[in-house]
Write a protein that binds this DNA or RNA. Sequence first.
DNA 1: TTGTAGGCGTTATCAC
DNA 2: GTGATAACGCCTACAA
Lengths: 349, 349
Amino acid sequence: MATDGDDGGGRTSAARGVTSYAVAKAANVSQSTVSLVLSGKAAGRVSPATQALVLETARRFGYQKNELARVLRTGASRLLALAVPNVQQPFFGQILVAAELAAREADHSVILVDTTTDPGWVERLLGMFGSRLIAGCIVYASDDATETALADVRDRILFVEAENPPTSGIDLDVAGGVAKAVAHLAALGHRRIGYFAADYPKATYRRRLEAFGGEIVRHGLAHEPAWRAAATFEIDRATEVATTLLSTLPFTALFCDDDLLAAATYRAARRVGIDIPGALSVVGFNDIEMARMLEPELTTVAIPAEAVGRTAVRRLLGQLDTKAGEAEMPFVVELELRVRESTASRPSD
Amino acid sequence: MATDGDDGGGRTSAARGVTSYAVAKAANVSQSTVSLVLSGKAAGRVSPATQALVLETARRFGYQKNELARVLRTGASRLLALAVPNVQQPFFGQILVAAELAAREADHSVILVDTTTDPGWVERLLGMFGSRLIAGCIVYASDDATETALADVRDRILFVEAENPPTSGIDLDVAGGVAKAVAHLAALGHRRIGYFAADYPKATYRRRLEAFGGEIVRHGLAHEPAWRAAATFEIDRATEVATTLLSTLPFTALFCDDDLLAAATYRAARRVGIDIPGALSVVGFNDIEMARMLEPELTTVAIPAEAVGRTAVRRLLGQLDTKAGEAEMPFVVELELRVRESTASRPSD
DNA sequence: TTGTAGGCGTTATCAC
DNA sequence: GTGATAACGCCTACAA
């Protein structure tokens, strides 16, 4: 239908201050009747005729419930916060999108909180809870300190990849993912494997390294601290670090904590003249879109970001309208190894 | 600590329902005094001693203003919506982060609206405005239809890259960016240039193509419709399209509407055995992080996403507390050409 | 079946 | 200087 040519009779200017009271007056009923009807609680309480009248009048006026007033009265906000380390990382972008979509399906909206760039984010979150502005929050990759700081509101928070294996919430089977990657390399004949770590103090990275160590032993492979380096995701710096790491090349395969690090490894390999996967196999983590744009396409451990984001919202919503106390089992997401072109048989020495 | 048994002395459980009234009672003053003090409007109205007392008591109680009530009363929300086509695209991720940061600095929060995946986003937005839930909104890359649909609230919206050159808001000097790219290619000796278009009906892409056509003429270069193809950003499909486009290679340089398309071009070039930049120079658009991870690093037109996001929020905020009517001049953001390794001199034919 | 009244927690306007 | 008191717009007993 046309835009809306709100000239003639009943105005239709949706925007400003059409209150339920105004609708009531126009329909010649009481405000509470309007409320009843528009909240769908008029079943058998308001006559069909009146209901129709109210509905029609509301429509004509372009009536919009004032969400603020509703929440103030009921305490049931339809806003969710999503606290993630860094939305700029493509991976979290995916999470965000999926979360937003799931939230929307449940008629909620998402407020973004960036935990990396905002030192006071915990305060802000607490404030939002205190105001009843938000109903709940998803916190991604929290550490111990924030978890205790958020203790008061923990039943309205869903933790994903928390520092401690969460009692509820969502956790990733990081160990399983790493195991698949190492098994893949072992099957290709690699015996000496290096490790390019993400230089962030997050539990998930610690777990990856631990799992890696375990798998190395399990498969009877070799790994030494000297075959290890760490860098943040800043591309130039990461490339430098990788260059150093690759300069002597005592290993034939490299496990990277993140696809971005793998990308830096590619750059370094080009500089140093190392062929991937001819002389060096590379495995990444996350499977961001870029993984397939690298040459050769990157073999990587995929976190199903979309599923994580969606599940997180659904479970949070469930947890919110459950009577607190009955902690749900944590949901463990399986990781998948996507084998592409960056891994090949061990070069004959 | 226990759940919260707010009985005896002053508890500190921040989370739940510490009202200004409770603080007032504890401090032995009236609720309005508390409000005055905590709103910073106590200058010369409340004695310093009382002020200190109130402040201290509030702190002890972990008092948090109820944002909902405040907004309901004042009508001044501190929530902003950000409506962008696709947060999953790295470019918009950058915008989002910058916007969130700028908003936070002004003590606001950002709600995300994805205009691509949510067909009803305009309704939702209107609803948020009607509820007074949000104070304003940034709309990225809107089209005519949505602009008229949002007419009622347009003074609370800041448009970025709108369909029509906006009367206020933010616009990009797309033509300037394209001009730089074409000039660069011309200077390298290229005379025949192809075009890989983004297959989305957005004004910005139309403008890029138009500007491209203009520059081709201006420099006396050659371009033909047959040297043009369009694709969405889905990588496999884009690669196919690029492969076809490159199969005959009647041109020596290719302008891409987006870095992602350039990446697809790289993949296609590899398949077909075309060397970049030896046989083909490639120019991208956006300068997302990936641009530097491609080999060779991509020459591309950079949109200063961070500046755009930040400026958008600042101007929106300015516009919001300005008396409507005095339309500000649109802010034009200059684009920059980042010359890297994907462009080289025209191959001798 | 419908209407009245009270309150959610603030801010703002007045009296005192 | 400080404190009642009235909105803001809605929901919900309870009364009619």
